[in-house]
Nucleic acid binder design. Structure first.
Length: 667
DNA sequence: AAATGAAACGTTTTT
DNA sequence: CGTTTCATTT
């Protein structure tokens, strides 16, 4: 779509200031943003004075690619683009030492502090819920401190609040000591940075895509960025991230918050055929209209009827859909077909049914790829070769050694740190030499376990080790068992050979083919192949194959980066590898911004979608309805809905079909 | 006191 | 499936 329609043209050519573009689903929002940037550049704006904020890094990449195709790379070089998080990191790391960490890793840290102080009471929030609340607080409340926030919102927790505050303040101290940052820290620090430390020229214009999903903190960052003009594009009907703090009021109150704000809307839908669009429109009009708008059909061709299939059992549904997809593969590309669901768990069984029929799939998200143990192990191993003494990576690796738990990891970690004068890597590779190591015992009570009389005898026990590692004083630790020692030696070998390698592809490939890695994944495959108290060898082989396949993705992806740190940060920011070669399996949330010729919308049982438990909190039933609307409007030509009365055979009651289906039906 | 292994549990969504 | 809990082992 190269030519702009009247609505788009008006938006693209608006003057500098505060502009909000209400872009309904499929109305050419991306083209509009791309055209706007092109116009700014033609007006003489410097590329590096344009900032483009998107919800995913993939979206940013695609828009930049489109601009590059149109204008050539030299003209657009310097445009600041990416998610709030990615751009924040970009700026912050110029001034600070930032060790970006995955949420799951930092949760482990929080957990350990939580458990250290935990009073034995049964009305306590568990650490994970506490982490959620804390994150919510950070993203939404810019006024109170955490204690005040808890007192206001969780008054009934009483004295527990003191405990929570203590845990979180120590957590913050720990993070600071290691320079650990999580997603929220990136935003919090970015807000500070743009408020106090940003000294360059103001931006010519800041453009924001998916504006309906910004939260209060992100909105504050926007306000803090010095700029001449703001260009926000969004659709309140597609606001689906309330759980993440997204505040629909931000788009709703645009006119009130910015003086002389101009509002444009894009209503002509180029994506979907009429019956799908009309269905979606009927559903979404049940929600309050924040700005008047309507979706206008432009595709007037004949339509295929929207289908609805009902089943008694979820598995029958998956089976049917797999067959239905199979029948369409002659006429359609796999990647033009999507199966969309509310909960990731729907994807697991759907995936299995499709695979059984030999249909290639590409699944997005899910039990996050980067949270897989094998992937984390690979990344942790590589991460240990760099110079910072990363206890979280060390913990991740050492816990895989039999007979080592949290407590022992700590002892070993501290010993290496002492022996390396503060550097873990040095402690493992080149421990300092002393006549005796009693000083370790005095430095921390954990080392009370050292006894100099035992030291000599103990050390000689390990003379069989093949490497220099046999002389490492860490072996004096009396709680190291035979297995642990050989495990540590394998770690030593890996680090020794890779300490000076920074190329992520080489480093990860070496980690992948290392002995220590094969030890770990063997255990992992064994764990995953337990059937009734026994390891089934056939399954184990298959799991091992799975693990290796998972690793291949990441080994492939690593080729795109020059330094390990760059790779590491990008994987955490979820700058994902392309996988568009199969039938697309994805959650509604992950489908945002995408479109497919054929869409299967599955598991539309009341309770599941809308999720009734959740609709009592956060965005409520309206948000669930918006989710449904987003799912519907992904479909270009064909929409097939389905649901089952029972998820499992032994479910006690039958579900009814989603009320949203009935809302969309013509009267 | 720490680690293990078996058994029960529950499971939204993402940067 | 991974996580949590509990009883048992080291």
């Amino acid at each position: 779509m190269n030519r702009l329609n009247d609505e788009q043209f008006a938006a693209v050519n608006t003057s500098l200031g505060s502009n909000l573009i209400i872009a309904s689903a499929g109305t050419g929002k991306t083209s509009t943003i791309v055209a706007r940037i092109e116009k700014l550049l033609n007006d003489g704006a410097k590329a590096n004075s344009i900032m483009l904020l998107t919800f995913t890094n993939k979206a940013a990449r695609e828009m930049i690619a489109r601009l590059e195709k149109k204008l050539g790379s030299s003209k657009i070089k310097g445009i600041v683009s990416g998610t709030f998080h990615a751009i924040s990191l970009e700026y912050l790391k110029k001034h600070k030492n930032i060790q970006l960490k995955r949420n799951s890793e930092l949760r482990a840290l929080l957990k350990s502090i939580y458990e250290k102080y935990s009073p034995n009471k049964d009305d306590l929030f568990d650490y994970s819920y506490l982490a959620d609340i804390y994150s919510r607080f950070n993203n939404t409340n810019l006024v109170d401190d955490f204690r005040g926030y808890l007192k206001t919102n969780y008054e009934e927790q009483g004295d527990n609040i003191n405990f929570y505050c203590k845990v979180l303040s120590e957590y913050e101290e720990q993070k600071k000591a290691h320079n650990y940052y999580d997603f929220d820290d990136l935003l919090l620090n970015a807000k500070d940075f743009f408020t106090n430390d940003y000294k360059n020229e103001p931006f010519y214009e800041v453009l924001v895509d998916e504006y309906q999903d910004t939260n209060n903190l992100q909105s504050a960052i926007l306000d803090a960025i010095p700029k001449k003009s703001l260009f926000c594009v969004g659709d309140y009907d597609q606001s689906i991230y309330a759980f993440n703090g997204a505040n629909i009021e931000i788009i709703g109150s645009f006119k009130d918050r910015y003086k002389n704000a101009r509002i444009y809307s894009l209503n002509k839908n180029y994506r979907s055929v009429s019956n799908i669009l009309e269905f979606a429109n009927r559903v979404i009009t049940k929600n309050e209209r924040l700005y008047p708008k309507e979706l206008i059909v432009t595709r007037k061709e004949a339509t295929k009827p929207i289908k609805l299939h009902s089943f008694n059992l979820a598995n029958e549904q998956y089976e049917f859909i797999a067959n239905d997809i199979l029948s369409k593969l002659e006429a359609n590309n796999r990647a033009d077909i999507a199966v969309i669901y509310r909960n990731n768990s729907s994807g697991d069984l759907m995936e299995r049914s499709l695979k059984q029929k030999g249909i290639k799939i590409a699944r997005k998200g899910g039990s996050s790829f980067y949270e897989l143990k094998e992937i984390n192990t690979l990344i942790n191993l590589a991460n240990l070769t760099n110079k910072n003494s990363d206890i979280l990576s060390f913990l991740g690796i050492l816990l895989e050694s039999k007979g080592v738990g949290n407590a022992k990891v700590n002892i070993i970690y501290k010993a290496f740190l002492e022996l390396g004068n503060g550097s873990l890597l040095e402690g493992i590779l080149r421990p300092i030499k002393k006549d005796n190591y009693d000083f370790l015992a005095k430095s921390d009570e954990a080392f009370g376990l050292f006894a100099s009389t035992q030291n000599q005898a103990k050390q000689s026990e390990f003379s069989f080790l093949a490497t220099e590692f046999k002389n490492n004083p860490v072996l004096l630790l009396k709680e190291l068992k035979f297995d642990n020692v050989t495990f540590l030696e394998e770690l030593y070998k890996f680090l020794k050979e890779n300490e000076n390698i920074d190329n992520p592809s080489v480093l990860l490939n070496n980690a992948y083919s290392s002995k220590i890695f094969s030890l770990i994944i063997n255990n992992l495959a064994a764990k995953r192949s337990f059937k009734g108290a026994k390891i089934v060898n056939e399954i184990k082989e298959q799991k091992l194959e799975n693990i290796k396949n998972n690793c291949k993705y990441i080994l492939d992806d690593a080729k795109n980066y020059n330094t390990f740190k760059e790779f590491y940060e990008k994987t955490i920011l979820n700058i994902d590898y392309e996988n568009t070669k199969g039938v697309q399996l994805l959650t509604v949330h992950a489908s945002k911004g995408l479109e497919f010729e054929i869409v299967y919308l599955i598991d539309l049982a009341q309770g599941r979608f809308p999720n009734l438990k959740l609709s009592k909190s956060a965005g409520g039933i309206d948000e669930e309805r918006r989710l449904f609307y987003v799912a519907l409007t992904r479909a270009k030509d064909e929409l097939i809905m389905s649901w089952a009365k029972r998820q499992k055979e032994d479910d006690k009651t039958d579900a009814i079909r989603s009320i949203f289906i009935d809302e969309g039906k013509k009267n």
